[in-house]
Amino acid sequence: MPAAISPTMERPSAQPTAPALAVSAAGTAASAAARTIIDIDHVDFFYGPSQALHDVSLKLDEKKVTAFIGPSGCGKSTLLRCLNRMNDLIDGTRVAKGSIKIRGVDIHGPQVDVIELRKRVGMVFQKSNPFPKSIYDNITYGLRLQGVKDKSRLDAVVEKSLRGAALWDEVKDRLHTSGLGLSGGQQQRLCIARAIAVEPDIILMDEPCSALDPISTSKVEELIHELKKQFTIVIVTHNMQQAARCSDQTAFFYLGRLVEFADTRTIFMNPANPQTEAYVSGRFG
C-alpha cells in the first residue's frame, strides 16, 4: 500500500515533466546530503477556473533557506501559501492534482488537522501585521492559544524569541507597549519573533522585506541567516540580490510553472535555462 506512491526521496529525476525540471533534479542532487522536509509533487492549483500552478514538483531540504523567485503573478506566493494551507481561506481554491508532503505526510490528507499544521509551519507576511496588542501579548499569542499559562515560561519564550529575532535590545524596556508603535522593520521582526515563538519546523516568508527600507531589510536578512540554524525557511522575494544573499537554493517560477530549481549559486552564475538567465540578469520581469 505505501508502495503505491513511491517514497519521496527516491523519485527519479526523469519524470515526464517540463524539460526544465531536469536541471532541478541536478540541483537537488548537489545537496543530496541534506534531508528533504517538504516534497511538492506534481501540484496543479486553481483559483476558481484559472490555474495558478502547473505541475510543480520540488523538494526542499531541512534547515536550508529556499528562495522562490519570479515575476509577479508567477505563482510563487501561491505555492508558499499552499505549504501551510493558507489558501484554504480563499474561496474556490483547490489543489487539483499532486500532493504536498511535509515530513512524508500529505498535508491535504484527511488525517491532517490544519490547525496543527499551521503550528508547525509558521508564516511571516508581506505586510507586517502585528496585532494591536502589546509586544509581549503578540509573541505569547501562539503559546497562549496552546494553553500555556505559566508566566515564567512565557517570559522566557518572549525573551528567547525576541533575541532570536534580533529585537530584544530594542524593545526590552517596552514589552508592554503596543506592537503598532514599532517602526516598519521592527514590526516585521516582531512578526518573525511571533512566528518562532511557537517553535515551528518551517517558517514561510512571503516577501518579508518588500515594505522595508534597506537598513531594515539587511537586518531581516541577517536574521534569516541566524534562523537557518534552527528552522527550515522558505522565502518568496522578487528582489534577486536578496535571494542571492540569503538563500541556499533557489527556485525560479514563470507563468505558474517551475522553470528551474538549483543551488542559488548555480541559478545566479550558471543557469541552465535561458529564461532563468534572462530573468536573473534583469532582462525581463
Binding site: 505505501p2 503505491a4 506512491i5 489543489v95 487539483a96 515530513r103 491535504h108 491532517v112 508547525r120
Partner: peptide, 23 residues
C-alpha cells in the same frame, strides 16, 4: 480533477522526525 487521492500518509516511511500535525 478531483482532489488528490491521498495515500494513507501515516503509514509512509518517513525519513525525518514524525510529522506533528496529524490530527
Amino acid at each position: 480533477i478531483p482532489p488528490p487521492t491521498t495515500a494513507p500518509a501515516e503509514a509512509a516511511p518517513t525519513s525525518a522526525a514524525p510529522a506533528g500535525f496529524l490530527a
